[in-house]
Design a protein around this nucleic acid. Structure first.
Lengths: 341, 341
DNA sequence: CTGTTAGCGCATTCAT
DNA sequence: ATGAATGCGCTAACAG
C-alpha cells in the first residue's frame, strides 16, 4: 500500500518560500487571480509542483464557510431504488467541485439522527434524503441550517421540497399502452397494498380503463412484490378470467412470475397475453423471455434534479416546497410487442 | 424546506460568552475533559443547548490533522458488486465517528484521477478503491500521503493491499456440493472468459472434479453472464450430454437460464439435474423456481474488512500488502436439494 | 480548575 | 504587482 508520508504535507507557506514570494502571492498565483505577474505565477506553479503541493480544502472551508460537500442520507442502501438516485446525484455533483457524504441509517431513526448530526458538524452545504419507498417519511424539520431535498420518499411536511416518481401516471401509461395495442380485457396484479406506490399505480390503471370506457378484469390483485406472487396470482386470474389478453404488473418481479405461469398454461406472450410491468429493473427485464415492457421511473434523473435543486438553494434561491411528481417513461420490449426475429 | 439560517451559526465563543467562561473551558467542558468543574460543565452544556451549538468539525480537523473521513473510489456504482462492499464499509465506519466520501469515476481513468485529487484536497484519512470485476486494476501508486486498500478488484501492484473474493475456492465448493449429493456427471456453464472471475471459478470446478477422480462433462462453456446464454448453453449441453446430472453455473443469471431450458426439456430440478450457481443475487436466487443454491462472496464482510484495515493503518499499523483472497460461502436452496414442501 | 496564548492552512483586506 | 496583517473556529500547552 501507499507509504505513510514521513513528514508533514507541503503547505502554501512551503511553496511561497521555495518560490521566493509571500503566502498571499502564492495563493493568488495558484488560484488564477489576475493581480499576479505571469512569471511569478509560473515560479509559484513550479514550486508547488515540485513539492507536490495539494491545497488543503479544510483550511479553505474554514475561511469561506463553504465545504463544497453534500450529505446523502439514506434509509437503506440495499434498496434497489436508492442506487440510481445516488448515481444521479453523484453525477450532478461529480461534474463540479462538490463531493458527497454517503450515510446509511439502516432504517433506524436513531441512527438517522446521529448521521444527520455528523453531517451538520461536518458543515455540509446541503442534504439529500433518499427513502426506499414512495411512502411519506418524517420530515427532518424546518429549523435546519442547510437546505434539504427529499428524493423518492417525500417528506410528510408540505413545507419541504420532495421529488418522487409519478406512479399514478405510470399505471396510466402502462395501461394505455396495452389499450393502444387493442387489448381490452386487462387485469392488474401488483404488490404489497401497504405501499403507496402499489395503490398509486392501481389508481392509474383503473383511471385509464375507465377513461377508455372499459371495466378491469376483476379487482387489482395486491399481495407481495415477488415472482412467487406473480405466479400464484396469474394462476388464479386465468382460472377466473380465461380470456384476459393483457396484464399490468406492479413490478418486474411480478411480471416474471406471471409470464412463468403463462408458459405453464401454454399461453403465448405477447400474442395471447401482453404484459407491461413497472421498475424496468434491467437484469430482470432484459433477462426475461420475452423481455419485459416496463415503466421506468427515471431515477437517475430524479437524483440529478435533487442535486440541482440543492445547488440552486446554495446560490441563495429558494428551494421551493411541496411534493413534485416526476414523469416516468415506458420502455417497450417483447412482452407487449412481438419482436420480429 | 428548511430555512436558511439568517445569521451565523453559533460558535464556541458564543457558548463561552453565554456561559460566562473562556473558550478553552467551554471546549474542555463539551469534550468531556476531566479538568472541569461539574457545575461549570453543566452551565456550558446548557448554553450550548440554548444556542443549538454544533461543533465545527472543519475547524477541529484543521487543528488535529485528522478529518475522520474516508474516500470510497469506485469505478461504477451500477456494479452489482460495489454496493454490498460499500455497505460493509459504511457499516464499519458508521459505527464510529467516520464518514465516507463516495466517488464514482464512471469507469473513466481521467475522472478517477480527478476524484482522487479531490479526496486528497479534502484530506481524507484513507481511501478504499472498489472495482467492479476481480480483474487486477492499475495501482493508484505508492506515493500517496494516505493509506489505500483495494477491494474486489485487486491492484496490479503487489505492494498494495488488495482484498478480493476467492473465486477458485467458490468453484471448488460449488462442485464439491454436487459431488456430495452423489452427482457424477457434472458440467460447467459460465460467463465471459475475459473475466478472471470466470476463469478462476472454472479452475476451481476442474480441480474439484479431478480431485474426485472424475472427468467434467465437456469443457467449461464460456460466453456471457446472461440468462440467454444460460438457456442456449443448456440446450447445447443436454443435446450432447443428455445424462448430465449436475451443472455448476458461473452466475445466478446463467443458472436461471439453465433452469428455464431444463423445464422446457421436461427435466426436473433438482431431481434429474442439480444446479449450483455463483453470486447469490437475492432477487434472482430466491425468485427462481426452484430457488437457487448459490455461492455467496460475502461482499459486505469484504467491505467491512477493507474499512477495518484502513483503521489499522490510521492508527499507525502497517496495512500489509499483497492480494488476500477472502472465503466464500455456499447458500443451499432448492435447486440442489429438494425442499420438503 | 480556569483563562491566556498560540497556532492549524489558507484567502482576503489593505498597504506599499 | 506584491506583502504584512487578520481571522475562520477550534484545541493544546501553559500559566495562574
Amino acid at each position: 500500500m501507499a507509504e505513510k508520508s514521513p513528514q508533514r504535507r507541503a503547505t502554501l507557506r512551503d511553496v511561497a518560500r521555495d518560490a521566493g514570494v509571500s503566502v498571499a502571492t502564492a495563493s493568488k498565483a495558484l488560484n488564477g487571480r489576475k493581480e499576479v505577474a505571469e512569471d511569478t505565477r509560473q515560479r509559484v506553479r513550479e514550486a508547488a509542483e515540485a513539492l507536490r503541493f495539494t491545497p488543503n480544502s479544510v483550511a479553505r472551508s474554514l475561511l469561506t464557510r463553504r465545504t463544497g460537500t453534500v450529505g446523502l442520507l439514506t434509509g437503506d442502501l440495499e434498496g434497489r431504488f436508492v442506487i440510481p438516485i445516488l448515481m444521479g446525484a453523484e453525477d450532478a455533483f461529480g461534474a463540479g467541485r462538490n463531493n458527497v457524504f454517503l450515510c446509511d441509517a439502516r432504517g433506524d431513526s436513531i441512527r438517522e439522527r446521529y448521521h444527520l448530526n455528523a453531517l451538520l458538524e461536518r458543515r455540509v452545504d446541503g442534504i439529500i434524503v433518499v427513502g426506499r419507498q414512495t411512502d411519506p417519511r418524517p420530515s427532518l424539520g424546518q429549523d435546519l441550517p442547510v437546505p434539504v431535498v427529499y428524493a423518492y420518499a417525500p417528506s410528510d411536511d408540505p413545507r419541504d421540497l420532495s421529488l418522487t416518481p409519478d406512479n399514478e401516471s405510470g399505471g396510466k401509461i402502462a395501461t394505455e399502452h396495452l389499450l393502444s395495442l387493442g387489448r381490452m380485457r386487462i387485469a392488474h396484479i401488483t404488490g404489497d397494498p401497504q405501499y403507496v406506490a402499489a395503490r398509486d399505480r392501481a389508481r392509474g390503471f383503473i383511471g385509464a380503463m375507465r377513461a377508455a370506457g372499459l371495466e378491469p378484469c376483476g379487482q387489482p390483485m395486491f399481495a407481495a412484490w415477488t415472482e412467487q406472487w406473480g405466479r400464484d396470482a396469474a394462476a388464479a386470474l386465468f382460472e377466473q378470467y380465461p380470456n384476459v389478453d393483457g396484464v399490468v404488473c406492479g413490478s418486474d418481479q411480478i411480471a416474471r412470475g406471471v409470464i412463468d405461469t403463462l408458459r405453464d398454461l401454454g399461453r403465448s406472450v405477447p400474442d395471447d397475453v401482453a404484459i407491461v410491468s413497472h421498475d424496468n429493473w434491467e437484469v430482470l427485464a432484459t433477462g426475461s423471455r420475452p423481455t419485459l415492457t416496463s415503466v421506468d421511473a427515471n431515477l437517475q434523473d430524479l437524483g440529478r434534479l435533487a442535486a440541482r435543486k440543492l445547488f440552486d438553494a446554495l446560490s441563495g434561491e429558494d428551494v421551493g416546497s411541496g411534493v413534485h411528481r416526476l414523469p416516468v417513461t415506458l420502455v417497450t420490449r417483447g412482452s407487449s410487442v412481438r419482436s420480429r426475429a
